[in-house]
């Protein structure tokens, strides 16, 4: 079975999904990420799906589960690089990825995670969400 590689870059784990994943590969990725978050103590996870030409309910559900599990382990997940056709299809399928933060690309995803961290250090847990943040794209 193939495995999706997980890279550690500073305080972030970066996952770039480059293959059409079998369901088991997606589940394995979910497990691998949880273990790596605990082992490394990172506070951010970026999942780059720019190479995926579809996201079906299984992959969508796995991404949502990864985001929930990381949150419990004190890491924030940002999904980046969703193709426009994939976004249109996901919404029509009925999958809104609630609770999953998204950004247009890896750079904006890193910026989004970095900003959250700064805000937390300042002692303000909830960053103001006034919709003016260019890096933040909400799916729900």
């Amino acid at each position: 079975m193939e495995r999706v590689p997980v890279l550690k870059i500073g305080d972030i784990l970066l996952v770039s999904i480059q293959i059409d994943m079998e369901d088991q590969v997606a589940l394995q990725l979910q497990e691998d990420l949880a273990e790596r978050i605990v082992a490394t103590g990172v506070h951010g996870v970026i999942i780059d799906i720019s190479a995926l030409d579809i996201v079906d309910s299984f992959v969508g559900r796995t991404i949502a589960a990864i985001a929930s599990v990381s949150r419990v382990l004190d890491a924030e997940t940002v999904v980046v690089g969703m193709r426009p056709a994939v976004a249109i299809t996901l919404v029509e399928l009925g999958l809104s990825l609630p609770g999953v933060r998204t950004a247009l690309n890896v750079e904006l995803g890193i910026a989004l995670l970095g900003r959250r961290e700064t805000v937390t250090i300042d002692g303000d847990d909830e960053p103001a969400d006034d919709g003016s943040d260019p890096a933040a794209v909400h799916t729900s």
Binding site: D23, D53, I54, V55, D56, F58, R83, A85, T89
Partner: peptide, 17 residues
């Protein structure tokens, strides 16, 4: 079209599963 390709592949993935 690209969007329609994406839709039919996604539908097929759901039904095949």
């Amino acid at each position: 079209s690209l969007v329609d390709q994406t839709k039919i592949v996604t539908a097929a993935s759901e039904l095949a599963r």
